[in-house]
Design a protein around this nucleic acid. Structure first.
Length: 887
DNA sequence: GGAAGACCCTAT
DNA sequence: TAAGATAGGGTCTTCC
C-alpha cells in the first residue's frame, strides 16, 4: 500500500452508491488538481447520507412516539435511526433524530423517504446535496490536504511518488488490475486522470489556499450554415502558466468530434472554455453527436463527445457525455467546469456589444491583428470551400482569444478565490448561485451549533418588502459636496442588531425564549434577541467575513509596499471575493425562498437603514447643511465653503490659493461629519469630495467632479453608463458633463447644437450610432428560436426584429445575447431597423435615419441642458425663444 | 398627443 | 422548477 499526502483543489464532486454484503455504501468522488500540477481523483469512503426528523409543532414527545419511530424505521430506504439530539428549531428546542438512508437519491426518488416521513414528522436537513455534507462536516473548502492510498498513477505524478509505486501500478498490463481495485472501493474504474487514490473522509482536512495550476481547454467550431454540420474545429490547452498546445481538426465530422474528445482525455483539462460555448458550440456538438452516433453502441457516443472525467465503460454512458441542466441552461461535464469567456466578459466588462471582436477591441485597442476581418461568418460554407486555410486560422485565433480574455480579467483566479471564501468546489463558484454559497457557510455553522436546518421555502409569494430610501434631487449644479456613506450598511445593521432567523423573537412559536436584557426592536416593531442571550449565526458569519476582509486588505497593503505582485493579486482577489459574498447576504435573507428567512428579517434591515440615513439627513438639515442627494446608504452634503471659491480648478501657472483653501475646507468638513456620525456598528465613511455636482433632477442620475481622493469624473445612471445607448451619445454626454462641471454651460450648449447639426447632415460614422439590447428567446426542439415565450408581442420589440435579421443572414443568435442595430426609418411604427452585422460580415453599413438620431440626441442632451434653459427642441433649432429668464 | 404597459438597464 | 433584494429612469409600441 502506497500512501501519499497531497494538497489539491477540488474542481468538482460527485458520488456513486452500491449495495454490498454489509449494506449500502456510498463513495464520494472528488476531481482535483494537485498543487504540483497533476490531476487527481479521490474516492472518499465513510460518509453516510441522512436527514433529520422531529415531532411537528411545540410538543416534544407525543404519547405514541415509539410507534412513530418504529414506523419510520420500517420505511424502505431507511437504514438506521440515531439517538436524538436537542436542536433549536422554529418551534423551539426539541429532540431531532438523525435518519440514515440507503443512498442520497433515496431521499427524494425511489423509496421517497422524505415524502413518507413528512406525513408524521417535521423533516430537516433533507435537501442538502450529498457532496456538501463532506465539505460541511469536515469544515473544508476547495483547497484540501489528504493522506490517501494510491490506487493507480501515471508518470505525470511527481517522480518521488511514481518511484514508490510497485510494479503492478505501472504499465498498461496492470490497468485492468487497478480498475478492479478501484471498483472494489466503490469507484467506477480507471478514470482519465493522473492519480487515483482513496481515503476515509476523516483524512481530508482544509489547507491554506494556494494558486492552483488548473488546466484549461478552449475550443471553437466552424459550422456550416446550410447543413448545421461541423466543418472544422480547433482547441488549445493551457497547463497552468506553461506553454499552450494548439490542435486543429478537420476531415469528416466523426474525425473532428473524435479528435476533440481524445484531446480532452489526453490532456485532462479542469476547465473548458471558449466564446459562447454554453449556447452554441456545446449544444451543436451534442446534436451532431446524437445524429452521428450508433444508438445501440454507447461507445460511439463516448468516442464523439465523451468529455466526462469518467472511464469509458457502458455503465458510465450517461456521465461520459455532457448534458444541459434543463432549468438553468448551463452545461454539466462530470468532473470538469464550463467557464464561458462570453459570459465572463459580459459580467465583468459590460460591453456595449458582445461579439468576440468587439470585446477584444475593448480589451486590446492597440492590437491591430485582432481587428482585421478575415472571414465572413455569414458565408461560412463558401469561405470553407474557397479558402479553408484562412478559416482554420480564424478558428484557431478564436480558441486563443477566450483564454486571453479570461486571463485579462483574472476570471479563474477570481472564481478560485470565491470558492475558497465560500468553501465550495470550484465548480460551485463558477456555476452555482449566491444561495448555494451562503448555504455552504450557514449550514455548517448551524450544524455545529445544533440548529435544525429547514428546507428551502417553496412557492414563496406575498408582499414585497420596502427597500432603501432615495432622496429627491434638485436640477442644477451644486458646489463643494462631501459624499459620505455607511460602510457595508446592510451587513453592519445585521450584526449590530443581531438580526437572524435564530434570534427573531416569536411569542407564538417560542414563548419561552425571553431576552436576558433588553432587545433590538426595528422601526417596524420586529424584535431580536440581544447577543447576550444568543448570538445569531448570520451576524456571526458576517462578523467573521468582515474581519477576514480586513485581514486580506492589510495583507494586500503590505504586499504592495514590499512589491510582492503575486501576494498582492492573491489578497486583492480574496478581499474582493469576501466583499461579493458579504453583499449577497442581505439579498438572500430578504428573499422569499431561502431556508433561514422570515419576512421580518429583510424588512427590518431596510427599515433600520432608512431610519439611520433619514436621521442623519434631518440632523444635517437642522444644522443648515444642505443634503443635495442620498441613496440608501449615502449622503451628499454641501460644505460651508467661502462663496468666492473659484468655479473651476486653476490651470497650471495660475494662482491656486483660493481653490486649495476651498478643497481643504471641504475635506475637513467631510472628515468631521464622518467622525461625528459614526456610531458603534454603523461606520459613516467620508468617501469622496466633489468640487461640483450636477443632476437634471432625477433620482439615481448624477455627475460629480471628484477632487479627492483621486481626481476623476463620476457619472451615475446617465446614458453614458448604459450598454443600450450609442457611442455618439455617450461621448457627447461625457463631454457635456465635463463642460458643465467646469461652469462652461454656453460652450456645452454650442457643442450639442453643432453635433446635432452634423447628425442631421448625415456626417457621422454609422458605427457610432449602433444601439444594442439583450434579446431573450427559447431554443426549441429543431434549433429554431422561439420568441413568443419570452415576449408578449415579440415583433413589436426592436431587438427581436434585429435578432431575426441576424438569423436570416446566417449569423448565430443565442438567447440572452445583445443584438445591435441601426434605425433606418423612424417615420414608421414600429420603426424600421437594420441589424448591425458589419463586425461579423465585413460588409459596410451606411444607412441610418438622421431624424431618429437627432431626436434621441436632443431628448437625452436636452434633458441636461434644460437646466440651463435650453430644451431639446432648442438644441435642434439651434436657438431658443426669448423667455422670462433670458436677457 | 398622451396614457398605459412591456421591457431594458442601472443604483445601491 | 429554481431562485439574492427593491428603487428608479427611460424607450418604444399600442391604444384611445
Amino acid at each position: 500500500m502506497v500512501l501519499t499526502t497531497v494538497e489539491s483543489c477540488v474542481v468538482q464532486g460527485s458520488y456513486m452508491g452500491r449495495d454490498t454484503d454489509s449494506g449500502p455504501e456510498t463513495v464520494i468522488e472528488l476531481w482535483c488538481r494537485a498543487r504540483e500540477g497533476h490531476s487527481i481523483l479521490l474516492l472518499i469512503t465513510g460518509v453516510r447520507p441522512w436527514l433529520e426528523i422531529s415531532v411537528p409543532g411545540r410538543l416534544k414527545t407525543p404519547p405514541n412516539l415509539d410507534d412513530l419511530l418504529d414506523q419510520a424505521r420500517a420505511i424502505k430506504g431507511v437504514t438506521k435511526i440515531h439517538e436524538p439530539i436537542d436542536k433549536w428549531s422554529e418551534m423551539g428546542v426539541k429532540p431531532h433524530w438523525r435518519v440514515e438512508v440507503s443512498q442520497p437519491w433515496a431521499v427524494s426518488t425511489g423509496p421517497k423517504v422524505r415524502e413518507k416521513l413528512e406525513r408524521e414528522w417535521s423533516v430537516t436537513s433533507a435537501d442538502i446535496p450529498f457532496i456538501n455534507r463532506l465539505f460541511m462536516d469536515n469544515d473544508i473548502g476547495p483547497h484540501i490536504s489528504t493522506e490517501a492510498e494510491v490506487l493507480w498513477a501515471n508518470q505525470s505524478v511527481p517522480d518521488s511518488l511514481f518511484a514508490k509505486l510497485p510494479g503492478s501500478n505501472k504499465g498498461d498490463a496492470a490497468r485492468l488490475q487497478a480498475a478492479d481495485k478501484i471498483r472494489d472501493i466503490g469507484g467506477s474504474g480507471l478514470y482519465p486522470v493522473d492519480l487515483i487514490a482513496t481515503c476515509d473522509f476523516t483524512k481530508i482536512v482544509r489547507c491554506e489556499p494556494f494558486a492552483t495550476p488548473f488546466v484549461l481547454m478552449s475550443f471553437d467550431l466552424e459550422t456550416s450554415i446550410a447543413e448545421e454540420t461541423v466543418l472544422c474545429a480547433a482547441a488549445v490547452i493551457q497547463q497552468g502558466d506553461g506553454e499552450r498546445v494548439i490542435r486543429e481538426f478537420q476531415g469528416n465530422e466523426k474525425e473532428i468530434l473524435t479528435g476533440l474528445s481524445k484531446l480532452i482525455r489526453e490532456y485532462d483539462p479542469d476547465i473548458i472554455t471558449g466564446y459562447n460555448i454554453d449556447n452554441f458550440d456545446l449544444p451543436r456538438l451534442n446534436t451532431r453527436m446524437k445524429s452521428l452516433a450508433n444508438k445501440k453502441d454507447f461507445s460511439s457516443g463516448a468516442d464523439l463527445f465523451g468529455w466526462g472525467r469518467v472511464p469509458i465503460i457502458e455503465s458510465e454512458a450517461k456521465r461520459l457525455v455532457p448534458s444541459r441542466d434543463s432549468n438553468r441552461r448551463t452545461w454539466r461535464i462530470h468532473g470538469r467546469c464550463v467557464l464561458d469567456a462570453w459570459w465572463q466578459a459580459r459580467t465583468v466588462l459590460r460591453p456595449k456589444r458582445e461579439t468576440l471582436k468587439y470585446v477584444c477591441r475593448l480589451l486590446w485597442p492597440e492590437n491591430e491583428d485582432l481587428q482585421k476581418m478575415d472571414v465572413d461568418a455569414s458565408q461560412m460554407d463558401r469561405e470553407w470551400a474557397e479558402r479553408p486555410d484562412v478559416v482554420m486560422e480564424y478558428c484557431v485565433q478564436d480558441t486563443i482569444l477566450p483564454l486571453e480574455i479570461l486571463r485579462e480579467i483574472s476570471a479563474v483566479k477570481r472564481k478560485e478565490a470565491l470558492a475558497s471564501v465560500a468553501a465550495v468546489p470550484l465548480e460551485v463558484a463558477i456555476s452555482g448561485t449566491t444561495s448555494q454559497w451562503i448555504d455552504s457557510l450557514v449550514i455548517r455553522l448551524a450544524d455545529s451549533e445544533n440548529i435544525a436546518v429547514p428546507r428551502t421555502n417553496r412557492g414563496g409569494r406575498g408582499e414585497q418588502i420596502v427597500g432603501g430610501y432615495v432622496h429627491e434631487v434638485e436640477a442644477g449644479v451644486s458646489r463643494w459636496i462631501a459624499v459620505l456613506d455607511f460602510k457595508s450598511m446592510y451587513p453592519s445593521i445585521m450584526i449590530s442588531n443581531n438580526i437572524c432567523y435564530t434570534t427573531r423573537i416569536d411569542k407564538n412559536n417560542r414563548p419561552d425564549e425571553v431576552p436576558e436584557s433588553g432587545f433590538h426592536e426595528s422601526p417596524l416593531g420586529a424584535k431580536f434577541l440581544p447577543v447576550e442571550t444568543r448570538r445569531g449565526i448570520i451576524p456571526r458569519l458576517l462578523g467573521d467575513l468582515m474581519n477576514l476582509r480586513s485581514e486580506h486588505k492589510s495583507a494586500l497593503k503590505t504586499a504592495q509596499e514590499s512589491g510582492d505582485k503575486v501576494a498582492e493579486q492573491f489578497h486583492d482577489e480574496m478581499q474582493y471575493a469576501v466583499k461579493i459574498l458579504m453583499n449577497s447576504f442581505y439579498g438572500v435573507f430578504a428573499s422569499k425562498f431561502y431556508r433561514f428567512t422570515h419576512e421580518d428579517l429583510g424588512s427590518s434591515i431596510t427599515a433600520w437603514a432608512r431610519s439611520n440615513i433619514k436621521s442623519i439627513i434631518n440632523q444635517l438639515d437642522e444644522e443648515g447643511h444642505h443634503v443635495v442627494y442620498s441613496d440608501t446608504d449615502s449622503v451628499f452634503v454641501e460644505a460651508p465653503v467661502k462663496e468666492d471659491a473659484p468655479l473651476k480648478e486653476p490651470a497650471e501657472g495660475e494662482d491656486r490659493t483660493s481653490w486649495d483653501e476651498a478643497s481643504e475646507e471641504l475635506i475637513k468638513f467631510g472628515d468631521e461629519l464622518a467622525d461625528r456620525f459614526t456610531k458603534e456598528g454603523a461606520e459613516l465613511e467620508f468617501e469622496t469630495a466633489l468640487s461640483s455636482f450636477f443632476s437634471h433632477g432625477a433620482k439615481k442620475r448624477y455627475v460629480g467632479q471628484v477632487i479627492w481622493p483621486e481626481p476623476k469624473l463620476l457619472i451615475r445612471g446617465y446614458e453614458v453608463r448604459r450598454t443600450d445607448s450609442f457611442t455618439l451619445l455617450t461621448d457627447a454626454m461625457t463631454e457635456l458633463f465635463e463642460m458643465i462641471l467646469d461652469g462652461e454651460s454656453d460652450t456645452a450648449v454650442n457643442m450639442c447644437i453643432s453635433l446635432i447639426k452634423k447628425v442631421k447632415e448625415g456626417n457621422v460614422a454609422p458605427r457610432d450610432l449602433v444601439i444594442s439590447k439583450s434579446c431573450k428567446g427559447k431554443v426549441s426542439a429543431g434549433g429554431q428560436i422561439d420568441f413568443t415565450s419570452a415576449y408578449v408581442n415579440p415583433d413589436r420589440m426592436v431587438q427581436v426584429r434585429a435578432a431575426k435579421q441576424r438569423i436570416e443572414a446566417g449569423l448565430n443568435f443565442t438567447p440572452g445575447m445583445k443584438v445591435g442595430w441601426l434605425v433606418t426609418d423612424f417615420s414608421k411604427s414600429p420603426m424600421k431597423v437594420a441589424a448591425w452585422l458589419e463586425d461579423e460580415t465585413g460588409v459596410e453599413q451606411t444607412e441610418y435615419d438622421p431624424d431618429f438620431y437627432v431626436k434621441r440626441l436632443a431628448t437625452a442632451l436636452g434633458r441636461i441642458t434644460e437646466a440651463f434653459g435650453w430644451s431639446g427642441d432648442d438644441l435642434i433649432k439651434g436657438n431658443r425663444q426669448a423667455n422670462l429668464f433670458s436677457f
